[in-house]
């Protein structure tokens, strides 16, 4: 291994947060191209036959254990049973992931239910964090954390599928409007099909 690759490997081993190439450049004094090569070298060293892998996640590079080893690792460090996420928690994470930074009232408005408790619970679990205050209303803004992006193996929230891919199809939106706008009318009432 090159000296730079050894340094990168050691830094990734020691850091609890993923390290971006920019941060690695600051720490090692190396250029980005050299760092890309060093990261590739470290990743090659930790290939399929090893217990650790290099992953690009949450805006940087991290050393992490291989998925197949979860069972034995959790004997050392149990995942708490409450670590599962409810549908409401997933929905709140989705709203924040796409709109961050976003305020609680905005989350409540989109979901149609009060989001206070859920946001607090997700902050407590380290999946959301405060991100300053909204300039106009002064409400606290929230964003996803590194832990959230690690959990869902996202390089960043930009790694989420485009929100358009989850939108209702034209047919679904048409059916929705038809049922809501045309409901209760007998015969040829206004059907609002568009």
């Amino acid at each position: 291994m090159t000296a730079l690759a050894r340094a990168v490997e050691a830094l990734l081993f020691l850091s609890p947060e993923p390290l971006s190439v920019g941060v690695l450049a600051e720490l090692t004094g190396a250029g980005e191209l050299d760092l890309d090569a060093a990261i590739a070298e470290v990743a090659a060293r930790h290939g399929e036959g090893t217990g650790i892998e290099v992953a690009e996640v949450a805006g940087g590079w991290a050393l992490r254990t291989r998925a197949q080893l979860a069972e034995v690792l959790d004997r050392l460090r149990d995942r708490p049973p409450e670590d599962t996420l409810s549908p409401a928690a997933l929905e709140t994470l989705a709203v924040v992931g796409y709109l961050e930074p976003v305020t609680r009232p905005e989350i409540s408005r989109l979901r149609g239910v009060a989001a206070d408790h859920m946001v607090s619970a997700l902050v407590e679990r380290g999946l959301l964090e405060e991100a300053g205050r909204d300039g106009a209303a002064g409400a606290v803004l929230y964003r996803t954390t590194t832990a959230m992006q690690q959990r869902f193996e996202l390089k960043g929230t930009e790694d989420l599928p485009p929100v358009e891919s989850f939108q209702l199809t034209g047919e679904e939106a048409g059916a929705l409007k038809r049922r809501l706008l045309g409901g209760g009318h007998l015969g040829d009432g206004p059907q609002g099909d568009g």
């Binding site: 850091s15 992953a55 050393l63 992490r64 254990t65 998925a67 197949q68 959790d74 690690q150």
Partner: peptide, 8 residues
């Protein structure tokens, strides 16, 4: 994505 574990 439940498999990998990270340093905490």
């Amino acid at each position: 994505c439940r498999g990998p574990r990270y340093r905490r």
